[in-house]
Amino acid sequence: MSFLDKMFASIGIGAAKVDTILANDRLVAGDEVNGRIVIQGGKIDQDVDDIYLKVMTSYEQEIDDKKVHKECVVGKFRLTERFTIKAKEKREVPFSFELPIDTPISYGKTRVWVETGLDIKNAIDPSDRDYIEVHPSPLMSKVFNAVTDLGFRLREVECEAAPFHARRRLPFVQEFEFVPTKGEFRGRLDELEIIFLETNRNYLELLIQVDRKARSIGGLLSEMLNLDETNLRLTITNDNAHNIKDMLYQVIKKYS
């Protein structure tokens, strides 16, 4: 093992490489993520302190009137104890972990990926990025279908930084912005925003923002002062899921 090989490996030339192979890249939050990590040794033996997998996404935060993109670790999973990957050795490490229940959905601008890394001292840590598609849960799908049936179209989906008092585990929320294109609420509302505050397989807590359309001088003044927005909470469970459309209709109608 020459000094040059060690030096080059420390800057990533001729060093170990990592590749993650997912069994399935289309998932629902709460699903098991399965696959294997393939580690290919480089020109020299290298001590690996750790193998980790991180579920990642990005969100926007407004700082000094500018929108800044930030990356966020949704979940991190450590896979192995310290080991040595020999020169030219090929090693496979199987893995399985639960996709965090609050992982955002892959709609609109939202991207979710699994990032794999090896911790190697005194060297650039090799890494790999694999994008996954996170689909809505059955309960979320029922909410989206009900909103569509009420005449709304999904216009935009964004992950945005949440104020401290509104945060849960993650520093952002995923906003689903709908606009009325037909039916009773067309012409009465500007938009409808929905945020899933708490989720699991059997329960959803929704934050709904009803943005009324200005229809008069007073309405325009309210719009300028953001007084035309009403924030509401609604709880959906498996027990009342059959009635989602009517529940949403009553809430939206009351405040539109």
Score class of each variant (00 low, 15 high):
95 F>T: 14
96 S>A: 13
96 S>C: 08
97 F>L: 01
97 F>E: 02
98 E>G: 00
99 L>Q: 02
100 P>E: 01
101 I>C: 02
102 D>T: 07
103 T>D: 02
103 T>Q: 00
103 T>F: 02
103 T>N: 03
104 P>N: 12
104 P>I: 08
105 I>D: 00
105 I>F: 00
106 S>G: 07
107 Y>C: 02
107 Y>W: 15
107 Y>F: 14
108 G>Y: 05
108 G>F: 07
109 K>L: 10
110 T>Y: 02
111 R>I: 08
113 W>C: 04
114 V>C: 03
115 E>D: 11
116 T>E: 00
116 T>K: 02
116 T>I: 09
117 G>Y: 04
118 L>D: 10
118 L>M: 15
118 L>Y: 07
118 L>A: 05
119 D>N: 11
120 I>H: 12
120 I>G: 03
121 K>A: 14
122 N>G: 10
123 A>K: 15
123 A>T: 15
124 I>M: 10
126 P>H: 05
131 Y>S: 09
131 Y>M: 06
133 E>M: 13
134 V>R: 01
134 V>E: 01
134 V>S: 04
134 V>H: 06
134 V>N: 01
135 H>S: 06
137 S>N: 06
137 S>Q: 11
138 P>Q: 05
138 P>W: 01
139 L>F: 05
140 M>I: 10
140 M>H: 05
140 M>L: 09
141 S>H: 08
141 S>D: 13
141 S>K: 14
142 K>I: 10
142 K>G: 12
143 V>K: 01
143 V>H: 00
144 F>M: 12
145 N>Y: 11
145 N>H: 11
145 N>K: 11
146 A>K: 07
147 V>Q: 00
147 V>T: 13
147 V>C: 00
147 V>H: 01
147 V>W: 03
149 D>H: 04
149 D>M: 05
150 L>V: 08
150 L>A: 07
151 G>P: 08
152 F>H: 08
152 F>C: 04
152 F>N: 03
152 F>R: 04
155 R>L: 14
155 R>T: 15
156 E>N: 15
156 E>L: 11
157 V>Q: 00
160 E>Q: 13
161 A>Q: 14
161 A>E: 13
163 P>C: 04
164 F>I: 13
165 H>W: 11
165 H>G: 05
166 A>L: 12
166 A>T: 15
166 A>I: 12
166 A>C: 06
166 A>H: 12
166 A>Q: 14
166 A>V: 10
166 A>W: 13
167 R>H: 11
167 R>F: 02
167 R>G: 06
168 R>L: 09
168 R>D: 14
169 R>F: 06
170 L>Q: 15
170 L>D: 03
170 L>H: 10
171 P>F: 04
171 P>C: 05
171 P>G: 06
172 F>Y: 14
172 F>L: 07
172 F>W: 08
172 F>T: 11
172 F>G: 02
172 F>M: 04
173 V>E: 05
174 Q>E: 12
174 Q>L: 01
175 E>K: 14
176 F>E: 01
177 E>C: 06
177 E>V: 12
178 F>C: 05
178 F>R: 02
179 V>H: 05
179 V>C: 03
179 V>I: 14
180 P>M: 06
180 P>I: 09
181 T>N: 10
181 T>I: 14
183 G>K: 09
184 E>C: 06
